[in-house]
Design a binder for these strands. Structure first.
Lengths: 194, 194, 194, 194
DNA sequence: AATGAATGAGTATTCATTCAT
DNA sequence: AATGAATGAATACTCATTCAT
């Protein structure tokens, strides 16, 4: 495994455990099993890690979402599966995701956020576009914009649930149910004769 | 004015101007017009300021929301005003809000988040309850849960817009429009004969 | 009880528990149950406490020594009792005594050491003088000088034993035995026909 | 020379000049010619220097003692030389020694004291053992215990003299004379036909 | 005499970053 | 490319001392 990958993996783990603020470069390199100086061959600073980490996490999220979604199912079902998948990822990685949201924000790396999230936005957008073409969702939807809204909605509620109420397993399910209801109406799924 | 309030006010201003990372305790006390040591009589560290700041910001948001909302208007209109108000606050304080979202998360102060946000959740929840009673919104709504979803939805999209695209004024408006559409369908506003 | 006495008593306890270095004025006043500022009405600084503390401890030591010593016994017996008494005090107060030895040394209060210890030196010196007159000890002894030597000898060995080996009760007794032997020969007790 | 040694050497010099209380880490590193941060690579705090300094001082004392003592001379003479040497070291380093005596005591480093002093105790003990074998001293002496008593006696009286009366040169000599007398009787030197 | 909130100079300590090997 | 000892600027934090009440 490349040193760069090792650094990113290590950083994800350490950030998850102690938070960004309290994490020292030395913690990261120690766990990665490399020398202090080596870090700087790959990253100019601690915060410059954030886009790389975000990229990994977004990729991971997309992978799980794609695995979960059944393209043959109704769009209603598909979006339910998307919500399920995103909640699943957030349940597993809520600490590191919280860190990413803040880490990208608190630096000059904001620019890269759009780049990092772009593939996910596009995938959802394409899904909405297709649904719209088939008349499966509300026609007034603007896929690009609604894609961002959907991801914002699902991720923010998932974060709320897992970060602040992660002691209660059932709570997550009940809140997820309400979110699903919410977006079902928002998207206005139609039963299509096909 | 109490020293404690002075510290929090000062911190909000300084954080807004230079970001949390670059802000020294000395900057905060300087603007607050108190001695360095006095800070530590009220807060044990820089991060421990976060809950107090969050409280002020949530209070400020609620205040603006309440000022903006016309209780006599239709609920459809009222929620439009709520979105407007929240976007307004986020436009003004997007840096400090990003910091709060992350600051509360990345510390041991998570517990306090619920406490801080509770009054806002309750206010929205009550509003939904009332709307429901009047038959102005979808009857399947669970006010408590939907309140959290709404705030999550509005704030996360507002943050996206102002943090990552705040160069483009029109963009914010267009995205807000889509959010409004989205939640209009989600809540299923009914025209009520009254 | 006067505030001054309260401060000294409190300081003895706190120093005993945490050592001089780590003790703050605030710790002392807290335990004494007085206000921070009150301290300065009685002592100009933390280190200026040392002579007062030393005085209390030397007085306490002398008191116990005088109680223990039987003036009617042989001088050999009396010095054995003196050793016993000093070991007893050191066993009870070894931490605070270590603190005094160092506390007096590390300041400009050295001058006062002589004053504080003077009564104890004099009492031992008088005892030696009397013994000498009766021919009970070596005639070449210079009482003033030997008094200091004796106290130095007994206290330093007692400190060694209780500070560094206070886990072993018997060890103290065995070392005390050897000290007694040592000074018995050093003083050359004579059996006097009286 | 290793940085660690440089730090210890520098600390000894600076402590000697300004006292431990007034010495800043920055003073130590400045004289050692190293960077501030480097100090912390070797010692976690100022007080943690104490055992290392004590070790050096005990080694220095032993070295001078060994240099001064003439192994061919009578034991009586040899112990006189030992007293001379210890007084000499105490005269030169009385401040730093006072600091060590207290510094080791007032911290958690007490444990290390025994380790540090062990070689000195052993050397004196061996000397006493040899003297005993030759019948040059009292046969009832227990070398291990008496070694500690001797060092305690000599060092405590030396400290008294140099710390509290170092203005008077002759005073030291007169007190040393009395100590010598004292231990001559205590050890019961015999003139041996050899 | 007593209080204790406020002070701010003083310092220990941290940790990102460098660079000779 | 890799190392990790050394650096030292930057700052959080402490705590003795003051003084208005």
């Amino acid at each position: 495994m490349g040193k760069k990958t090792a650094i990113v993996q290590s950083a994800i783990e350490v950030f998850k455990e102690q938070g960004i603020e309290k994490t020292k470069i030395s913690d990261i390199v120690k766990r990665a099993g490399i020398a202090q100086g080596t870090f700087y061959l790959y990253f100019p600073s601690k915060l410059s890690l954030m886009p790389a980490i975000a990229e990994v996490m977004v990729a991971k999220t997309m992978e799980i979402v794609k695995q979960t979604v059944d393209d043959q199912a109704s769009y209603s079902k598909q979006f339910e599966q998307i919500v399920d998948a995103i909640y699943e990822v957030n349940k597993e990685y809520y600490e590191i995701l919280a860190v990413i949201y803040s880490g990208l924000a608190s630096t000059e790396h904001i620019r890269e956020w759009e780049t990092v999230y772009a593939p996910f936005y596009e995938w959802i957008s394409a899904k909405l576009e297709a649904a719209k073409l088939e008349g499966a969702v509300r026609q007034s939807i603007k896929p690009d914009r609604t894609a961002k809204i959907l991801i914002g909605l699902i991720e923010s509620t998932a974060e709320q649930v897992f970060l602040y109420a992660h002691h209660d397993e059932g709570e997550a399910d009940r809140q997820k149910e309400e979110v699903l209801d919410f977006l079902t109406y928002a998207l206005q799924f139609q039963t299509v004769n096909s």
